[in-house]
């Protein structure tokens, strides 16, 4: 699953961006996305995409895999771009480039920042029930993914996806039903243990909100450079 892949990159990375503070990375991403949104020309967008590609290589992320992940969500933009500006012209390309760069921005962010740190940061702005549920979602994904993988493998070995479309859908649904039942049991056990450990409506993270370090400077320089480029190009 993509979330596990990117989280692994974030946890094991050692680059300046990995070591920068979460808040700075968040601000950097927000600036780039805003530049992408307000851009009205192909030149600016190509500049941003090139800058992002150089950054991906510089911080030693797998560029091919990240580009693949960035192309997947572009289906909607393609439909939108073709139908709004038929058949396919300058404006269509503009829409596609905007989506591509915006997706790259968040993929760079999650490749350099573990999800737990992002959730801790968001915890300062979101209601605690949502932040806590985000932590539980994150933990549960890693617990359930293993179960789901095992079930899928067994299902394939036992021929669960042979025997036609209806049979495959039926078996796949039973498998999901099983995962849901196990998930609900898991949530009950998790809630019990949370209560036993004194949970009173907030999972605390010791991380402070306003933390900056030397590594942040590079991301701010890049952000300012992008703003200048968007203005000048």
């Amino acid at each position: 699953m993509e979330i596990a892949f990117f989280d692994n990159l974030a946890v094991n990375g050692k680059s300046f961006l990995h070591n920068a503070s979460t808040l700075s990375k968040f601000i950097f991403t927000a600036i780039i996305i805003n530049c992408v949104i307000i851009s009205r020309g192909i030149n600016e967008l190509i500049f941003i995409a090139v800058l992002q590609s150089v950054l991906i290589i510089a911080i030693r992320l797998p560029i091919k895999r990240i580009f693949m992940a960035a192309f997947n969500p572009m289906f909607f933009s393609l439909v939108f771009a073709v139908t709004k500006y038929p058949p396919f012209g300058y404006d269509s390309l503009l829409v596609l480039l905007k989506t591509f760069s915006a997706v790259l921005s968040v993929l760079i962010l999650i490749s350099a920042t573990p999800f737990t740190e992002l959730f801790s940061l968001l915890g300062h702005f979101l209601p605690s029930i949502i932040t806590d549920a985000l932590f539980v979602t994150y933990r549960s994904i890693f617990i359930l993914i293993q179960q789901l993988d095992n079930h899928l493998t067994i299902m394939k070995i036992r021929g669960g996806f042979n025997g036609g479309f209806i049979n495959s859908i039926k078996n796949f649904s039973s498998l999901l039903g099983l995962v849901i039942i196990r998930s609900i049991d898991l949530s009950e056990r998790m809630y019990h243990i949370l209560k036993i450990r004194g949970y009173k409506g907030k999972i605390y993270s010791g991380k402070s909100f306003l933390v900056f370090n030397k590594q942040d400077i590079v991301s701010y320089i890049l952000a300012v450079g992008t703003i200048m480029a968007v203005i000048l190009l």
């Binding site: 737990t116 933990r139 998790m190 243990i193 036993i196 450990r197 004194g198 999972i203 605390y204």
Partner: peptide, 27 residues
């Protein structure tokens, strides 16, 4: 009461090891 369940994956909830160990004390 302190408790350690059979499947510890289900009881470790803090974002980091430190946060998880401090969980009950903070609560």
């Amino acid at each position: 009461i302190g408790v350690v369940f059979q499947n510890v994956d289900e009881q470790i909830i803090g974002p980091t090891v430190w946060d998880d160990i401090a969980f009950s004390m903070r609560n």
